[in-house]
Design a protein around this nucleic acid. Structure first.
Lengths: 221, 221
DNA sequence: TTGCTTACTTACTAGTAAGTAAGTATTTTT
DNA sequence: AAAAATACTTACTTACTAGTAAGTAAGCAA
């Protein structure tokens, strides 16, 4: 049964809506990483998209809702990454996780945890919960990867995988922050040391390519 | 030569001025750590101190100046810490550094690096430079302590002291951030693992007392 | 053709931000 | 006693914030 013209146009409309929504989320994500949640405003997004402030409120009635949507989108991305790398070895999974942060360092972005946790106290409960869920998801992902890799004898570390995951994620999170003050080079030094500790050989070329939803940093005015 | 009454009153005035200045800095420091630089306002400080907004502008014409003063005060505190612990062993110095962060975790504070680096891009050059200097100072302090401790055979780690310092500082910085999402317990787990990696025995009681300029969290309205 | 929905825009409110200019009570200097 | 400095306050400006209410052009549905 081929779709009628009516169904066709309806789908087109829905896609348009989704695209606009996604574009708002994309820009908000970039702004949160670059300026922090409390430092960006609807006007920044509206200006770049050449629409009015109110149009953003049409999609996201409150800033809190927008924040939640940004996190939801990040969680969806993570789920896709997890799915696509689920067949890989634990070591490859760890390397992939590192490369996700590496990609951020290239764009002078920080990660959402590093950006949202400092402002945590100023968020509404809903948004706080979303941040919590995001942190849990990332820590779990790292933990599972490290655990798997150690069982495969590919990485070495002492202690519980959960604790090690917290340390590794911390290193990556803070490395992105420190890039702000000390430039890209500190990221490499830190990752170098981190992976050497874990007994993982690597060169930049070894890092897997990450399909990135944000091909270039959005331009802010 | 005993001071005249005139000299007496002048000194009293200068002390008053200094006290007010310090109190503004103290409150700003707390607010920056709890809410972030861009999320707090002069009104928060004025309200707590029961003075007017403009009185704060009298001491710190711009928010940037206030930010610089907060960092300068942190640097002074660090210099004092360094001076007072300069006779200790490297291991004790490392433990002391950990306990500074531990003290912050108790107040649900994050460190100034963790608070200021995410907003870095929105700062004026002057303030950015101050943040850079602060990061350098903390990393150097940790580096010197680790280096000394390793030479004394009290801690073990691989790699350059500078790289290790970056990892250790990162862990502490990020541990404070993660406390927001996961509660105090994650701080202990992370510090436990961190110090075990370094071969340092510790219990909470072992951490040196830190003389703290912020006896309780300031109350915010 | 009429009414309804969608995706906005225009124009606004109410509140808050940093920052300033001018005034004032108190104290200090001359 | 007069002038100047100090440590503010009062009253204000300009600029922006999130958020809303009402309107509208275009398309779709009856």
């Amino acid at each position: 049964m081929r779709p009628t013209r009516v169904e066709d146009t309806r789908r087109k409309r829905e896609e348009d809506r989704k695209r606009t929504r996604q574009e708002i989320i994309r820009l908000a994500d970039g702004l949160i990483r670059q300026q922090g949640f409390n430092a960006f405003s609807y006007a920044d997004i509206a200006g770049t998209m050449e629409i009015r402030n109110a149009a953003i409120h049409y999609y996201f009635p409150t800033k809190s809702e927008l924040g939640k949507a940004v996190i939801e989108s990040e969680l969806e991305r993570i789920r896709q990454y997890q799915w696509r790398t689920s067949g890989n070895s634990g070591e490859e999974q760890v390397r992939f996780l590192v490369s996700v942060f590496y990609r951020n360092s290239q764009l002078n972005n920080i990660c959402l945890m590093g950006s949202l946790l400092p402002d945590f106290a100023t968020f509404e409960p809903d948004l706080q919960n979303a941040v919590n869920r995001m942190c849990d998801t990332i820590l779990e992902w790292m933990m599972a990867s490290l655990d798997k890799a150690r069982k495969e004898g590919k990485v070495r570390f002492e202690g519980e995988p959960a604790d090690r995951a917290a340390l590794v994620v911390s290193t990556l999170l803070a490395a992105l922050l420190l890039v702000r003050a000390r430039g890209q080079s500190i990221f490499f030094h830190m990752v170098d040391r981190l992976l050497a500790d874990l007994g993982v050989d690597w060169r930049v070329g070894d890092l897997p390519e990450v399909e990135w939803p944000f091909p270039e940093s959005p331009s802010f005015t």
